[in-house]
Amino acid sequence: MKPDDKQIKWVKEPKLGLSGRMYLGPLLDGLATTARHMLSTARGDGMTCQFPEERPKFGNPLIYRGVHRLNKDEQGRVKCVACFLCATACPAHCIDIIGTQSPWEDREKYPQSFVIDELRCIYCGMCEEACPVDAIELTALFDLTGASREEMIFDKEKLLSVYDATIEQEPMRSRQGAGGQGHSAS
């Protein structure tokens, strides 16, 4: 896609009106929000909670960007086709893949090793965006802890186990492109 492509919509910052430039309206807006939150906390359904005894409620866990998981296909095999697009998109360079020829008849390439350094990751979600087969997804697991750095380097098995642990609460977001074949969607 080129910068002059017709499909790109260039958006400009809106101009402030008179009330906006006086700051008074937005200031009152802000104070109203504060007051609303104070009231809701007093009522008991506020924004804060007593973590870790109390777990926070998510609006939509499906769009939360927490620990990664590697999805499995219908036959329980790793969905990833080792295309390296996540590693290419990753701004933190925390994904390390070794691709090789797959042992299966219907698949050409698969990851022999797939390692994410969860400490280096900035949880931006670019890997999920880049994945052509929806193999990598960010789950709503946010309270990740470990006793050592090595423990926080997740390999393929660990990432697949995150899938097993979270698939009940968070279904896979789409089912496109099994095996990396663009045509197989039909």
Partner: peptide, 21 residues
């Protein structure tokens, strides 16, 4: 032509891919 660019080794230096754009 299969659009299997993600697993094709030529992707990134493929003439078909470039001309497609």
């Amino acid at each position: 032509h299969p659009v299997d660019c993600p697993i094709c080794d030529q992707a990134g230096e493929c003439w078909l891919q470039d001309y497609y754009f």
